[in-house]
Amino acid sequence: MSVRARDIFKAGLIGDNPVYRQVLGICSALAVTNLLANTLFMCFGVVFTATLTNVTVSLLRRHIPKRVRMIAQVLIIASYVMMVDTLIRALNPDIHRFIGPYVGLIITNCIIMGRAEAFAAQNPPWPSLLDGLACGLGYSLVLIAIALVREPMGFGTLLGIPLPARELWWHSWTIMLMPPGAFFMLAILTWIARSRTGAKETSA
């Protein structure tokens, strides 16, 4: 791995983490973090789409007019997600039953567009691919951390497996099941992360 690649990964995962640092991609995706298994599905979708979109936008970067570049990016994202969605629905409907509901969440996830806009629009394809991968993983890191708290607190399970001796100590914390629970968790996580890495000013 070259020095440059390492930098991109470090920035995407920690230094410029898209969720707690750039405050992107928190929209409806937060709703799914009450179960770890759903979170993993969502993360996979985002990593995949972010990488693919970044490469495409990067290839087209010299041709996209400035005025319409955001909309061009949304169009590219939506098309990719819809094509993959249709293919999965045709080839394996059983898997599609699980991941179908994520499609809308992935398209409206501004993290993908945010990276296309901030990075891929100015950089060659290879670094853009790495950046999409790194930011997708950085996003996954945060979501998985939230899910690791919400699922045990809300359901008393982890990946669907009941926690040991939960009858003795566990009581369902309904707020952790509901989307507001995700906001509080994310706020706490942002707090911790920003305190540790120094609170430099960023604009979302």
Partner: peptide, 23 residues
């Protein structure tokens, strides 16, 4: 407000509480 919580962190908490009200 603790420095790490300023900005987005605090806003997230505000939105969380408000969305509870809207439920």
């Amino acid at each position: 407000v603790p420095p790490g919580l300023r900005g987005p962190g605090l806003t997230l908490i505000v939105i969380g509480i408000m969305s509870l009200a809207f439920v």
